[in-house]
């Protein structure tokens, strides 16, 4: 597994594509699985793609569906130990007033700690520049 993290709109996807030579059609997007595609269709795509963009949106959806994001990551990793994950870094702000947002922030953090521990490489992207921190 490879992880790209960093703030929103920092150029994670472009950096990932230039480092790993991944084309657009090989990327699944956390945004797109928000629509009503069947689970089977989503799973079969997850098997085929090389990278998973906006993974934080998947974590939010998993929570809304009552799933455990850590378990979902485990599942993904078991099936696709070679996947490249791209996920916004969301923890560097003031503690949100809403419980739901606090839980989301916590879940993204803990899930990404687990992902970073498993990953062979972790890149952090700022201003479009990727720094390999692991």
């Amino acid at each position: 597994m490879v992880l790209f993290t960093g703030g929103a709109f920092q150029g994670k996807r472009t950096a990932m594509q230039s480092i790993f030579g991944i084309a657009d059609h090989e990327i699944m997007d956390g945004k797109e699985s928000a629509d009503d595609k069947s689970a089977a269709e989503r799973d079969s795509r997850a098997k085929a793609v090389a990278a998973f963009d906006h993974y934080h949106l998947c974590i939010r959806r998993q929570m809304e569906q009552g799933l455990d994001p850590l378990e979902e990551l485990e599942k993904l990793y078991r099936e696709r130990p070679d996947i490249i994950l791209l996920c916004d870094e969301v923890g560097q702000g003031i503690v949100p007033l809403e419980q739901k947002e606090r839980d989301y922030r916590e879940a993204v953090g803990r899930t990404m700690c687990a992902a970073a521990a498993k990953a062979d490489a972790v890149y952090r992207v700022i201003c479009g520049i990727a720094e390999r921190i692991k």
Partner: peptide
């Protein structure tokens, strides 16, 4: 230092 749930 680090953000929330960063493992700090």
């Amino acid at each position: 230092s680090g953000g929330a749930a960063s493992g700090k």
